Computed example of a mutant assay.
Amino acid sequence: MAVTIKDVARKAGVSPSTVSRVLSNHPRISTETSQKVRAIMEQLGYHPNIMAKSLVSKTTNSICIMLPKSAEELFSNYFFMELIRGIVTQASRLGYDVLISSGANEKEEVEGVSRLLNGRRVDGVILLYSRTDDPVIDFLEEHGHPFVLIGRSDKYPDILSVDTDNVQASYDATKHLISLGHERIGFVSGPPELVVSKDRLKGYMKALADAGLESRPEWIVEGEFLQESGYRAMSFFMNLPNRPTALVLIDDVVAFGILRGLHELNYKVPEDLCLVSFNNIPLSELSTPPLSSVDIGIYNLGYTASQILIQSIKNNQDASYQKRQIIPHRLMIRESSIHSVRP
Rank of each mutant, 00 (worst) to 15 (best):
E285S: 03
E73A: 13
L149I: 11
A12N: 07
P191D: 04
C64M: 05
D251T: 13
V8C: 02
I5T: 01
F75E: 06
H339F: 13
L149K: 06
D318T: 14
S215I: 10
L213E: 06
S15P: 04
L331Q: 06
V14L: 12
L117Y: 11
E141C: 13
S179H: 11
H145P: 02
S54M: 01
H182Y: 12
V341Y: 14
K323W: 11
H182S: 14
H176P: 10
Y78G: 01
L67C: 01
S277K: 07
R152V: 15
L128D: 07
E111P: 03
D210Y: 05
S62E: 01
L247V: 06
K268N: 00
T132D: 00
P192V: 15
I87S: 10
M41N: 13
F75H: 07
V3M: 05
L67E: 08
S277C: 05
E32Y: 04
I63V: 15
S70Y: 03
L128K: 08
L286R: 00
F147A: 04
N316F: 08
L331E: 04
V19K: 01
E141D: 08
N280I: 04
V98N: 10
E183C: 13
E109T: 00
Q307I: 02
L265P: 07
L23E: 07
E193W: 07
N25D: 15
P48H: 07
I185H: 03
K36V: 05
K202M: 03
S70W: 07
T245Q: 08
D172S: 04
G124H: 13
N316V: 14
P27D: 15
D97R: 03
E183T: 12
D251K: 03
D158I: 13
L67I: 08
K202I: 10
M51D: 03
S292D: 07
N279H: 14
V188Q: 04
K202Y: 05
L44M: 15
T18H: 13
A71H: 10
L160K: 03
H143Y: 09
V3H: 01
E224M: 13
K53R: 15
M66S: 15
S229W: 03
L177Q: 02
R10F: 09
L291Q: 07
I258S: 03
K268Q: 05
F80A: 06
L74I: 11
I150S: 14
W219T: 01
F278P: 12
G261R: 02
T304P: 00
M238I: 15
F75G: 08
D7T: 01
P241S: 11
Q322G: 15
H143V: 01
I150C: 15
P244G: 05
A12G: 10
K198F: 06
D163Q: 09
S229D: 12
Y171I: 02
I29H: 11
T245K: 10
S336L: 12
G86H: 04
N300H: 14
D154F: 13
I29R: 13
K198R: 05
L201E: 12
G212N: 10
L83N: 00
S34R: 12
Y231V: 00
H47G: 04
G103T: 08
S34F: 02
E32C: 09
D154G: 14
P27W: 08
F225N: 09
A52Y: 06
L99N: 11
R243T: 01
S320K: 10
K107V: 09
